[in-house]
């Protein structure tokens, strides 16, 4: 179950990163910061909503990703667009963005970890184990969001426009597609997905201004192994890594597991840049 929850949250986060890279060719180093922001904002929203934690959490699920998406769209318009999406300059800029967001969270919310209560506390009692109902809910919610993303990308006009832009920016522009709007939208969507993942996860872990590092690293790993920019590969890789993460850390210390995973992924990039699965979605 832990593995499934991890895989679900990871898949959401990584799909956000992959989408941004796939369509915009932007490596968003601030992706983890958007994740963190989602969690911290969820805590804030939950603070202000009285009554049952259920209301606070659901309010957070709506509001936090929206705010994060708005911040991302702003960053795209005022920074990335002006850099003409030059790959190297945008990486430097998103590193800057990462520092700014992290430090802003530190100033505004302080250095402590903040708990967010789960919206409900049902335990599913099976003969052998008890399952936290919330964790099961997280898995289903993540799958639902991923399906929605898939539907959006393949079945709606906006998604079609995004995919057209991915194939060829110039041609898309020639066909009257407002590429600037599409890019801002994709960047916001990517960040929003990270934020949704964070809101889902935050009742299980906690909100902290430095919590973005691990999701960032893991998303990178997933996206690279799945093949840069391939959504299908990303999903498969998220599942494998989320599930195996628990297994690996049973044998090794978390640090050693990270060392091995990071080194292995770097090797994948060096020797198999098309990813382990190679298929392009």
């Amino acid at each position: 179950m832990e593995g499934l929850v991890k895989a679900a949250v990871l898949a959401l986060t990584a799909v956000g990163l992959s989408l941004v890279f796939g369509v915009m060719r932007v490596v968003n180093v601030a992706h983890g910061a958007f994740f963190m922001l989602g969690a911290v904002l969820a805590w804030t929203v939950a603070q202000y909503v009285p009554g049952d934690p259920m209301f606070g959490w659901f309010a957070a699920l709506l509001i936090a990703p929206a705010i994060v998406a708005a911040i991302a769209a702003t960053a795209d318009t005022f920074v990335l667009k002006r850099l003409n999406y030059d790959p190297e300059a945008t990486i430097v800029a998103t590193i800057g963005l990462l520092y700014i967001l992290e430090q802003a969270a530190l100033s505004l919310f302080g250095p402590d970890a903040k708990p967010v209560p789960a919206p409900f506390n049902i335990r599913l009692q099976l003969p052998w184990f008890g399952y936290s109902g919330y964790k099961i809910f997280v898995v289903f919610a993540a799958v639902a969001v991923l399906l929605a993303v898939w539907w959006f990308m393949t079945r709606t006009r906006a998604g079609l426009v995004m995919r057209a832009t991915q194939v060829d920016r110039q041609t898309a522009r020639a066909f009257g597609i407002n590429v600037d709007r599409v890019y801002a939208g994709v960047f916001a969507l990517g960040a929003g997905l990270a934020a949704i993942a964070a809101v889902l996860l935050v009742p299980i872990s906690q909100a902290h201004y430095l919590m973005g590092g691990d999701p960032l690293l893991l998303s990178f790993i997933v996206v690279i192994i799945g093949g840069l920019g391939s959504l299908r590969g990303t999903l498969v890789a998220a599942l494998i890594i989320g599930l195996s993460d628990g297994v690996i850390s049973m044998f090794w210390s978390p640090t050693l597991a990270k060392i091995i995973a990071t080194a292995a992924v770097a090797m994948v990039l060096v020797f198999r840049p098309q990813g382990l699965f190679g298929a392009r979605a």
Partner: peptide, 17 residues
């Protein structure tokens, strides 16, 4: 401020821009 690294971030963004 304890958030002094924000200067680093802002400097990066301003410089590339």
């Amino acid at each position: 401020t304890s958030a002094y690294l924000m200067v680093v971030g802002a400097a990066l963004v301003v410089l590339v821009l």
